[in-house]
Every structure is written in structure tokens, then in C-alpha cells.
């Protein structure tokens, strides 16, 4: 992507995005809620047009239904009530978009491979609603990797999972990268659980996108500029980085902080109220 910008309904979502995703690497897309992280994935999927700049996916303009791109949607409440079995859901990743009566003879084998890769063979014949959140995410990953995509897009794969399940999914994502050599883009709201496997970070805030290595992006000057508000990074004794926004008084020392100061900056505070931790390498 070079100089990319997205405008939806007259509103600029973000602009000046430039980055390259190499095969076999994992890119984390981070930023506050509604900053346009999922929009980036929709762009690559060809569901949303680019307003400025250029985007090439395998040297071509993005197009819908590209089999070289795998996509795992954000988990939805519907999964929790779905009576479909995991195997049937993975099967939809194979021939779900196809009309007609024909049956593909390779389907069984392709699905078996996806189930084996993601370690889901043991519970794939149970209905989705009877599985744990982590198991459902594994099934969803099998669905997304049915065609061994060269580019894999994961939208919030760790949302609503407990810490153990998060670690399990992170390991699996790493395994998929290692065994398929795919480039993986992961949308997340927290870098911490992913930091051990991430090669590149795209940080979206206040309609800007900053890309670089973890060290290049997750530092005080870059984040302060991104948020338009001073950011402090605290390094814990174990080497983890905690990202915090500075209070008004620290940023602009004032003997009598005026009463409207907080309200005035409420939006920035909301962005900053989330803590981001980062392990140093």
C-alpha cells in the first residue's frame, strides 16, 4: 500500500498509509475502537474502495473472492447458538460460495488437512454452540486456511478469549505461518499477547496509520504524535512495556487546572485509557 486513504460516507477513516507485508511475516494492526482496523481488511478483500493512493495484493488490485487471501471474520454471538458442526462450517470455506449440484472429490481431503493443521479433528463433528470459545476460533481458523492462502487476514482472533485460550490461538497462528509461509495480518486491540510472534506493527489512531517494527512504532515520540497527546511507556522489571497516557497536569503543568480540562479532552482520554503492554526483545 502506498499513500492509501479511505473515505466512507464523506468521512475520512484514515490517510497516508504506506506499508508492505512480506510473505512469512505477521503484521499486527492496532488502535482504538472504530479507528478503521477492520476497514483495512475490507480494503484488502476488495469490499471497500481505496480513495487515494494505491494498494496491490499479489501485484494486482484487490478483488473479491480471491482464493489466495484467507479471511477469518470477527467472532460473532451467532456462533454461540449455531447448530452447525465445525466440519460443515469448514466445508463452507471450501465450496460455500459455489452454486450448483457438483461435488468436488478433493473436498474431503482438503478439509481433513485444514482440520489436522489447526488441531480441530477431535471435536469438528460437534455443533459449534457446544464448543469453547478457543475451539470455535480454531475451527474458524481452519475455515480461513482451507485453501492454504498466501495472505491470511484475522479480525480480532483473540477477542473474548481467556488468557490461556489466547496463548493457544497465538501459538496456532504462529504454527500456520511457519507451516504455510503465509503472510498474516492480525487485527487486535492489545499487542501484548501477540508481541512474541509479530514482525511488523500498523498502528492506527486519529486517522493516521504508522507502520514499522515493534521498536519503531511502540515508543513515546511516535505514539504521542499519533494520539496528539503525550504518551509514556513504562518498562516493568521483567522488561514489559506499559503504555499510558499522561494526565493533563503532567503534560501542561498548571497551578490551577481548570475544571473543564478533563471534559475537553475526553476523547483522547478514552483512547488512552486502554493499557498496552509490550515485551522488549
Amino acid at each position: 500500500m502506498r499513500g492509501g486513504a479511505v473515505v466512507l460516507g464523506g468521512r475520512t477513516i484514515w490517510r497516508d498509509a504506506s506499508f508492505v507485508v512480506e510473505p512469512g511475516t505477521i503484521t499486527a494492526v492496532l488502535g482504538p475502537n472504530a479507528s478503521g482496523k477492520s476497514t483495512l481488511l475490507n480494503l484488502i478483500l476488495g469490499l471497500v474502495p481505496l480513495s487515494e493512493g494505491s494498494l496491490r495484493v499479489f501485484g494486482q488490485s484487490p478483488r473479491r473472492g480471491n482464493r489466495r487471501v484467507g479471511y477469518m471474520a470477527q467472532s460473532r454471538a451467532a456462533d454461540a447458538t449455531s447448530t452447525l458442526t465445525g466440519r460443515d462450517y469448514v466445508g463452507l470455506g471450501f465450496d460455500g460460495p459455489r452454486f450448483g449440484w457438483g461435488r468436488d472429490k478433493t473436498k474431503r481431503e482438503v478439509i481433513r488437512r485444514a482440520l489436522t493443521l489447526t488441531g480441530t479433528a477431535a471435536f469438528c463433528d460437534q455443533p459449534l454452540h457446544s464448543l469453547s470459545g478457543g475451539q470455535r476460533q480454531r475451527i474458524a481458523l481452519a475455515h480461513a486456511t482451507v485453501f492454504s492462502p498466501e495472505l491470511l487476514l484475522l479480525d480480532e482472533p483473540l477477542a473474548a478469549l481467556d488468557l490461556a485460550a489466547q496463548a493457544e490461538i497465538v501459538d496456532l497462528v504462529n504454527l500456520v505461518r511457519d507451516s504455510t509461509g503465509a503472510a498474516i495480518i492480525v487485527v487486535a486491540h492489545d499487542l501484548n499477547p501477540l508481541s512474541s510472534i509479530v514482525n511488523q506493527v500498523l498502528w492506527i489512531a486519529r486517522r493516521q496509520v504508522r507502520s514499522g517494527s515493534v521498536d519503531e512504532v511502540v515508543n513515546e515520540s511516535v505514539l504521542s504524535e499519533l494520539y496528539g497527546h503525550p504518551i509514556e511507556i513504562i518498562v516493568t522489571p521483567r522488561g514489559r512495556r506499559v503504555i499510558v497516557g499522561l494526565e493533563e497536569e503532567f503534560a501542561h503543568p498548571h497551578p490551577h487546572p481548570h475544571p473543564h480540562g478533563f471534559e475537553h479532552n475526553e476523547e483522547a482520554h478514552q483512547h488512552l485509557s486502554e493499557l498496552y503492554e509490550e515485551e522488549t526483545s
Binding site: 478483500l45 471474520a73 463452507l92 460455500g96 449440484w101
Partner: peptide, 23 residues
């Protein structure tokens, strides 16, 4: 229904992924 069984099922179960796959 029999001809469009799979796409109907896909779009009903997981609209987002179905859209990503070009439906």
C-alpha cells in the same frame, strides 16, 4: 434451493466471511 444450497447456507451462517469470499 438445491442449486443455491451452499451459498444460501454460507450467507446465512456467516455473512461476513461469505462477503469476503465474493458472495
Amino acid at each position: 434451493v438445491s442449486l443455491s444450497y451452499r451459498p444460501l447456507l454460507f450467507a446465512s451462517v456467516d455473512a461476513q466471511s461469505a462477503a469476503a469470499r465474493g458472495l
